[in-house]
Computed example of a mutant assay.
Amino acid sequence: MLLPAPPRTLLLNASLEPLCVVALPRAVTLVMSGKATVLESDGRVLHSEHVVVPLPVVLSLTRYVHVPMRRPLPPTRRTVLQRDDHRCAYCGSHADTVDHVHPRSRGGRHEWGNVVAACRRCNHRKADHLLHEIGWELRWTPSAPRGATAFLHGAAVDEPAWSPYLAA
């Protein structure tokens, strides 16, 4: 049985720090041009008439690339839901939206410490109230994702071979 190719490949700097995730065609191009080497493969190979390349799951650049300081990741709906593992910060059920703990209508800011994942029911019931006004408490304290792999949150779950390289 032929398994589908991995849709993405983890790209590491020459220092083995995670840089980004690239699509399979870009990964093969980096390997073929000598700019990257395959560190992890799933055992399958890609064939051309004259070349055989292991199917890359993790690549490492052959030369170190200086990466300028990354700007903090903004709290978007997707990133907040990923950070909170799609769990409502109020009741713990499946979250499908986000909520401002201190409502924006009352001067709350759109920042990591004030935005949490919420289910529609809790988001609607809370409305523009403060937590102490309705007697609610957060299940955890919201904070910005930390580490160089914050942009890859959840990736280790999707691709187990990446886990050793994403440990921070």
Rank of each mutant, 00 (worst) to 15 (best):
143 S>Y: 11
124 H>G: 04
68 P>I: 04
62 T>N: 13
94 H>I: 12
97 T>H: 08
120 R>D: 13
110 H>F: 04
118 A>T: 04
8 R>Q: 15
141 T>K: 13
87 R>C: 09
164 P>G: 12
152 L>I: 03
128 D>R: 04
34 G>F: 10
81 L>E: 02
143 S>H: 15
99 D>W: 05
104 R>D: 11
47 H>S: 11
77 R>H: 11
98 V>W: 03
105 S>N: 00
15 S>Q: 11
134 I>W: 05
43 G>T: 10
118 A>Y: 01
115 V>E: 05
74 P>F: 01
96 D>G: 15
100 H>K: 07
121 R>V: 14
12 L>G: 03
63 R>V: 12
154 G>R: 09
85 D>A: 15
109 R>I: 13
78 R>L: 11
36 A>M: 01
91 C>M: 08
99 D>M: 05
162 W>L: 08
10 L>D: 10
120 R>V: 12
134 I>K: 06
106 R>L: 08
7 P>W: 12
144 A>I: 02
155 A>Q: 12
56 P>I: 07
101 V>H: 07
25 P>K: 03
154 G>Y: 09
132 H>M: 02
21 V>K: 07
149 T>Y: 01
129 H>I: 02
146 R>V: 13
144 A>R: 15
137 E>P: 00
135 G>N: 06
133 E>P: 13
132 H>S: 10
132 H>P: 01
136 W>E: 09
91 C>A: 08
64 Y>N: 12
168 A>W: 06
149 T>P: 00
49 E>Q: 15
41 S>T: 15
14 A>M: 07
159 E>N: 14
89 A>I: 02
23 A>P: 05
166 L>Q: 10
113 G>F: 08
130 L>H: 13
121 R>L: 10
127 A>Q: 07
126 K>E: 05
65 V>N: 04
57 V>D: 10
27 A>F: 00
103 P>V: 02
155 A>V: 09
141 T>I: 10
